[in-house]
Amino acid sequence: MTDWSLGSYERTAAELEPVSRLVVERAGIAPGDRVLDVACGTGNAALKAAERGAQVTGVDLAERLVRVAAARAQAAGLDARFLVGDAQDLPVEDASADAVLSVFGVMFAPDARRAAAEIVRVLAPGGRALVTAWVRSGALAEVSAATARAQAALSPEDPDGPPPPGRTATDWSDAPTVAGLFAGHPVTVTLSEEGLAFRAPSPDAWVREQAEHHPVWLGARQRLGEERFAALAREMVEILLAHNEDPAGLQVTSRYTIATITRD
């Protein structure tokens, strides 16, 4: 399981802010709404909801990221509270949220059904949850898959073990899968697809940035060792080159879904 306190995830979080902005807009967050940001990271969605006058709580397992989110709220003069907690056992009361948001967060929960049940539990009747997840195709999906393969090769005797960092246990971008996670709950589920462009001066520069700062690739680097990670880095660069949309630098567009779960 990835340790999201490693490195400087806030650098990646800054690149993901457009997604949080879109999710908050799609959720129709209004003044007075009770909003819960699950696996909030550095608080992107939570803070954008607070800017709209919502009553906001953010929850994340990574204590360092919770501190970062709280400091960002204080610096911006926004009223939001942040708690250390698990998406599979949320530290909030039943029916206490008008809106639940999770931007590339709950998708990493090891027990997806339990996390889905928690979303339903905390939603008030008529409430809505918006959950984003990366589509499992495209440049960054292939980079993540390569990272998973490299780490899985270290333990070939355990093919049924938990997925290594870089790959999620459940595909939250797949409509039938998400519908199955919420089957039996009093909710309606719909999915839409969007895209987010990642840019860097070059594929090599992007890989170096991830290796030095991103929790997934820092964890992979530690686990693989420098020689194996160097081979992985070369494979990552080749994947990015194959998908590059900007010959003068690097641009790759990652597709993602927004699942909207509406409580009856």
Rank of each mutant, 00 (worst) to 15 (best):
E10W: 12
A39V: 03
A97L: 13
T170N: 01
A75H: 12
I119E: 02
S20D: 02
R199G: 02
A211H: 00
V187W: 09
S8I: 03
A62N: 03
D79L: 14
W172K: 11
S5E: 11
W4V: 07
A14S: 15
R167T: 08
R67D: 15
E194S: 11
S202E: 09
L101Y: 10
V23Y: 08
H243C: 10
I239F: 05
G28Y: 03
D264V: 06
G32W: 06
A62W: 03
A152T: 09
S192C: 04
A230I: 07
L78R: 07
A175H: 11
Q251M: 14
L218Q: 01
A87P: 05
G41E: 09
R72D: 11
E17K: 11
P215M: 03
T2Q: 14
P201E: 12
E157Y: 07
V19K: 05
S202T: 15
N244Y: 05
S137C: 04
T262E: 13
V237A: 10
D160N: 13
F198N: 00
S144W: 04
R128Y: 01
Y256W: 02
L232V: 11
E51G: 05
R223H: 02
A73P: 14
E142D: 15
T253I: 06
G28R: 08
A27C: 12
G126C: 06
P159G: 13
F182Y: 03
T170W: 02
V19S: 03
A70W: 01
G77P: 13
S155A: 13
L218I: 15
T177K: 04
T257G: 07
D86W: 05
D264P: 08
R167V: 09
R199W: 02
L78C: 10
D174V: 07
T177E: 08
A87W: 03
D86E: 06
D37I: 05
D60F: 10
G249I: 10
A231W: 10
R72C: 12
A62Y: 02
L241T: 08
E15L: 13
A179L: 14
G138N: 05
A248M: 04
T42M: 05
D79K: 14
E25S: 13
P162C: 04
A69E: 09
H185S: 15
S102N: 02
A49Y: 10
A97T: 08
A116L: 01
A76Y: 03
R199D: 11
L232G: 10
L140Q: 02
S155M: 09
A115S: 00
P156G: 08
A233V: 13
V59F: 08
T170P: 03
G126Y: 14
D246N: 14
